[in-house]
């Protein structure tokens, strides 16, 4: 592209972001060019901060500024219940409902035989160590309800089998506001299997 080098550099950087193509990168770069210098400085500072100050919690693996994270160091949280999730952003999703009072464990992925991701590539060993330390009554497997998520859940249940800890799986079934008529057979069968007494 022709034009000032700093501008083309900026476009190039934007284009590296997921979902951003040449046109969007161009629009964003021109927006930055027109923006107030203070806003741009704050934007640059936030970018640097997020890389410098945010790290993974040594206990649960979620994103944090302090180690251990606010959830792991909160005395009010129930350390006897661990919710196992795939990625750090899943912690935010569960926290948003505001009903879970236990702690988390982030696996950093799921077992994926076709992609060659095995237990060694995930934080499953750390989960076993947390359970073996004692005081864990329940492990809730909250991986995504797809084949890889299910396989990971079943593997966790298998290796925690003899450790006197209850391993549960989040319920799977119909979404709120969904229509039974349009539900697929796999989802509907999970909903029937996971039905609850009223």
């Amino acid at each position: 592209m022709t034009g000032p080098k700093p501008l083309s550099n900026l476009m190039e950087q934007f284009q590296k972001l997921p979902g951003i193509g040449r046109k969007t990168a161009e629009r964003l770069a021109f927006h930055i060019l027109k923006a107030d210098i203070k806003d741009v400085a704050r934007f640059a500072e936030s970018l640097r901060d997020v890389k410098e100050k945010v790290s993974l919690c040594s206990v649960c693996g979620s994103l944090t500024e302090l180690d251990p994270c606010a959830i792991c160091s909160d005395p009010e949280r129930n350390k006897g219940v661990i919710c196992v999730v795939e990625e750090p952003h899943d912690v935010f999703a569960v926290e948003r409902i505001g009903e879970f009072t236990g702690v988390y464990h982030v696996l950093m992925g799921v077992l994926s035989p076709l992609d060659g991701v095995g237990p060694e590539e995930l934080r499953i060993g750390e989960l076993v160590a947390r359970v073996e330390k004692g005081g864990v009554d329940e492990v809730i497997v909250a991986t995504n309800p797809n084949v890889e998520g299910e396989a990971t859940g079943m593997y966790i249940a298998k290796i925690l089998g003899g450790k006197n800890t209850l391993v549960t799986r989040i319920a799977r079934g119909l979404p709120m506001g969904g229509d039974l008529e349009y539900a697929d057979e796999v989802t509907l069968s999970k909903a029937i299997i996971g039905r609850l007494k009223m």
Partner: peptide
């Protein structure tokens, strides 16, 4: 969550 494909395009 409300996708018409969700469970229909899972492996196997």
């Amino acid at each position: 969550p409300k996708s018409r494909f969700a469970g229909r395009v899972e492996p196997f």
